[in-house]
């Protein structure tokens, strides 16, 4: 038998079965190759891949703190430049590290124009600490700090539009991707690495444990997010949207009803008003990015 696998992201990591973040890590390294230095934020991916001394990373890898990976990356890029070395630098953070606590460092690093690729695996809440709300948590999602209850429908705010914020910093390449479309993610990682300057990729990474679905459904949930227009896969070059994945859209409830975090929208009774608000978010996305495929009648 020659069933040996050899990935730069190694077997034996402690991610949950069906974990999208683990798939993201492996896909990033498959795309980036061994000539890459990775800087990880504190978070699920960091924890499940590096309990001392069992690192799953076969490339040079560093973790410092929760919020400073892009500042650490800035230093690494400067150091490599000074030494005349050619390794690529990738910073990886979850949505908490990226949207919230690391915002200052990311903004600084992007404004300064360091040549590195920042990848956010976006599972839409603080999963490592137990599913608390972040700035990436979508409207109406129930988390442990935005629980749905008698007088709450869950998270009250829509997702922060981080890709646009970073594009506004002058990032030459900004893209969104999904774990449900791995070849697309791989291509985007390659493009981000080839583009000089600070680039950003935000990867939708459905979390079976945090969102409440079976691990085998990770890809399905990711696809449904795209097919309903609640997540759009697009690319921005020099501040302009140059490509967006088109779909024949399904109603948002196809996505919502598969997840425990949106259960309160359907039980004890269907909340038409709230579902309509989420549908409006999808409609707005569809219009903004022009993703609707018009079917001929």
């Amino acid at each position: 038998m020659t069933g040996e696998t050899c990935h730069l992201f190694e077997v034996g990591h402690r991610a949950c079965g069906g974990c999208a973040a683990a798939l993201v890590a492996r896909t990033i390294l498959d795309a980036a190759g061994k000539n890459t230095i990775v800087v990880s934020s504190t978070g699920c991916m960091e924890v499940f891949s590096t309990p001392y001394p069992e690192t799953a990373w076969n490339v040079p890898w560093i973790h410092s703190l929760f919020e400073n990976n892009s500042a650490v990356a800035s230093g690494i890029v400067a150091s490599l430049k000074k030494q005349g070395r050619k390794e690529k630098v990738i910073a990886i953070g979850g949505d908490g590290a990226t949207f919230d606590i690391g915002m200052l460092c990311i903004s600084g690093a992007f404004e300064r124009g360091h040549d590195f690729l920042y990848i956010c695996y976006d599972n839409e809440a603080y999963m490592n600490t137990g599913i608390q709300r972040s700035g990436a948590t979508p409207y109406d999602a129930s988390t442990t700090t935005s629980p749905a209850g008698k007088c709450s429908m869950g998270n009250r705010r829509p997702k922060k539009d981080l890709p646009m914020i970073l594009a506004a910093h002058g990032a030459p390449y900004v893209a969104t991707a999904s774990v449900a479309y791995l070849p697309d993610l791989k291509k985007k990682v390659e493009k981000g690495l080839q583009t000089e300057g600070p680039c950003y990729i935000q990867v939708h990474a459905p979390c079976c444990t945090g969102w409440g679905f079976e691990g085998e459904k990770t890809m399905n949930i990711g696809k449904l997010a795209i097919e309903t227009g609640l997540w759009v896969n697009y690319e921005m070059e020099d501040g302009k949207v140059t490509r967006a994945k088109k779909v024949v859209r399904k109603p948002v409830e196809a996505y919502l009803k598969e997840q425990r975090r949106f259960r309160h929208l359907f039980k004890p009774s269907r909340n038409e008003a709230e579902i309509a608000k989420i549908q409006a978010i999808a409609d707005w996305n569809a219009e903004k990015f022009g993703i609707d495929i018009k079917l001929k009648k």
Binding site: E10, V11, G12, H13, R14, S49, T50, Y52, P53, E54, T55, A56, W57, N58
Partner: peptide, 17 residues
């Protein structure tokens, strides 16, 4: 121990999930 809690690759494999 690895200086400053550092480690060489290959050890994750010992954790047979």
């Amino acid at each position: 121990l690895g200086l400053g809690c550092s480690a060489k690759p290959g050890k994750a494999k010992e954790n047979r999930t």
